[in-house]
């Protein structure tokens, strides 16, 4: 996340306030989900890895499960995509600095010879 600080309006003030608010919110959200996972016993027996889906199906039924599953798929695919994309961008810049084998640069440069990512980690 720290790489987005360039885009902040008034980074000195907003970075700190942003992280404090976010830390509080994330802690609260994680705690609530963890608490309900335990309270509804939505874990164990091979369901732990998708306990959110199990938990949500308790009230609205399978429809809720589908909504969560589709959302989860989107989240996972977009994160995996961003992850792989960022990795190729970093491999490229490491190759440019001669600390990774040169093929990393060929493998990740676009057809115009420019790096694949536009924003991630550009110095």
């Amino acid at each position: 996340m720290t790489h987005l600080s360039e885009e902040f309006v008034d980074p000195a003030k907003n970075a700190i306030r942003g992280v404090l608010w976010s830390a509080g919110l994330v802690a609260l959200l994680y705690f609530s989900v963890a608490f309900l996972t335990v309270a509804t016993r939505s874990y164990g027996n091979g369901i732990s890895a998708a306990s959110l889906s199990v938990m949500i199906q308790l009230t609205p039924g399978p429809a809720g499960g589908w909504i969560v599953a589709v959302t989860a798929l989107f989240i996972c695919i977009s994160s995996a995509n961003a992850y792989v994309g960022a990795a190729s961008r970093i491999a490229y810049s490491l190759a440019q600095e001669k600390v990774a084998p040169g093929f990393a640069s060929c493998a990740t440069a676009g057809s115009d010879g420019r790096p694949p990512g536009r924003r991630f980690c550009s110095q």
Binding site: M1, L4, E7, F8, V9, N14, A15, R17, G18, V19, W21, S22, L25, V26, L29, Y30, V33, A34, T37, V38, S42, Y43, G44, I47, S48, A49, A50, S51, L52, A72, I75, C76, S79
Partner: peptide, 28 residues
């Protein structure tokens, strides 16, 4: 980016995929 966008981005980045997996695994 102003404060609400910053908070939304942080929460999304930290919370996004973790919540799908971690509470269940920790509970197990």
């Amino acid at each position: 980016m102003r404060l609400p966008q910053i908070v939304a981005l942080y929460v999304g980045a930290v919370f996004g995929t973790g919540v799908l997996l971690l509470p269940g695994l920790a509970a197990e």
